[in-house]
Computed example of a mutant assay.
Amino acid sequence: MTEFTTDKLIRMFTTIAGAIEANKERLSELDGVIGDADHGVTMDIGFGAVTEALANLDPAGTEPTQVFNTAAKSFLNAVGASSGPLYATAFMRAGAAVKGRTSLDRDAMVAAVAAMAQGIQDRGKAERGEKTMVDAWLPAAEAIRAAAEEGQSLQACLEAAVKAAEEGAEATKAMLASKGRASRLGERALGHVDPGAASAVIILAAIAGSATA
């Protein structure tokens, strides 16, 4: 059975950082249409800080909860924008969900992803349909839980989450924004993918890709 050890979890965050960096310009372009045009840069800074902080941990003496907690603190310290508190909360919730575990099996990773989604929703006070990253994260959480209940493998569960997030992000094109700067645009925001939802897909895809790495 595939599991995320502490070392693998640290490498997962490095993979996320690399994927965000590779898509930094695209994310900022998406944000430029409906926001400050800095989402890609902000996320890149945040995950860059995460990888630096995690590099200082000794995997042999560190549990997954500490990895998530370190990621939360370093992301929040590096990012002052709205995504900072959102992802800090997500990682803290994930850490709490897997507390006491020395490695993360399918059910633990399902719990972690679901906790991240719930943390983002709670901190952002957002509901589905408001053209935010919640429109990608909530479907992902539902899909990963459903796949686990069907007895699918960890990899299959993560892939189901990615697919649902992709569909959720695409659906934001048809939504009017009611949060943040995009809410001021009214119908001018139609036809554009929410940048936060787009980066959520990148993060989840990197997590899924890390399962077999």
Rank of each mutant, 00 (worst) to 15 (best):
G129V: 09
A72F: 02
A171N: 12
P59K: 11
G209Y: 02
V67Q: 00
A205G: 15
V79I: 13
G35W: 10
T70C: 03
A60E: 14
D194L: 03
G40Q: 10
A211E: 06
K125Q: 14
V162G: 05
D7L: 14
A197W: 04
G209L: 08
F91K: 00
L185K: 06
P139G: 08
A17G: 00
D122V: 10
V201A: 04
T15E: 14
M133T: 00
R145V: 13
L158G: 09
G46H: 10
L176V: 12
D105Y: 05
E166T: 10
A22C: 05
V50W: 00
A117Y: 07
V50K: 04
G84M: 09
V193I: 15
I10A: 00
A53F: 06
H39T: 03
A211T: 05
A71P: 09
A197D: 01
N56A: 14
R128A: 13
F68W: 01
Q152S: 14
L76T: 14
G119M: 07
G180L: 01
A147L: 04
R145T: 15
K173W: 01
D31V: 04
E187R: 15
A143S: 10
A148N: 10
S103A: 15
R128V: 14
K179M: 05
A171C: 08
N69S: 12
T15G: 13
L138K: 13
I16E: 08
C157H: 07
A94P: 03
D44Q: 12
I10F: 02
A208M: 01
Y87A: 05
A117M: 09
M116V: 01
M133C: 11
L185T: 06
Q66M: 11
R181S: 08
N77H: 13
A164D: 00
F91D: 02
A161R: 08
G48E: 04
T42H: 09
G209Q: 04
E29S: 13
A94L: 07
W137R: 00
R106A: 11
A55D: 14
F68A: 03
E21R: 13
Q66V: 12
N56D: 13
N77W: 05
K8M: 12
A19D: 15
